[in-house]
């Protein structure tokens, strides 16, 4: 299992489009992906779940990945967030 705390950097936060990108990226991997905010955790492959976190700019999220390709998966997801979902 790998775990990492990341901060949302794009201006509009994890709204519909970034949520879509996150879920689509997570879906490319075998590993299970979970996304947590405060004490609330959702399935990182469910768009409804990710949208419900309503993570605005500056919020801190915990990505947890479990499975064979977990290292690759977490790397791709972190990159997506660091690149602000190519929004700015």
């Amino acid at each position: 299992m790998v775990k990492k705390i990341v901060q949302i950097k794009n201006k509009l936060g994890l709204h519909a489009r970034p949520a879509l990108l996150f879920v689509n990226t997570a879906a490319k991997f075998e590993a299970d992906v979970y996304l947590g905010r405060d004490d609330h955790e959702v399935n990182g492959k469910s768009i409804m779940g990710v949208m419900m976190l309503a993570a605005e700019m500056g919020s801190k999220l915990t990505i947890t990945v479990k499975g064979l390709d977990e290292k690759k998966a977490i790397k791709a997801l972190i990159e997506l967030i660091e690149n602000k979902f190519n929004e700015e």
Partner: peptide
């Protein structure tokens, strides 16, 4: 048009 990808995916979301 990307927004409709979101709608599409929402309808595939097992939770709902």
């Amino acid at each position: 048009a990307k927004i409709f990808d979101v709608h599409q995916l929402l309808l595939e979301d097992s939770v709902i």
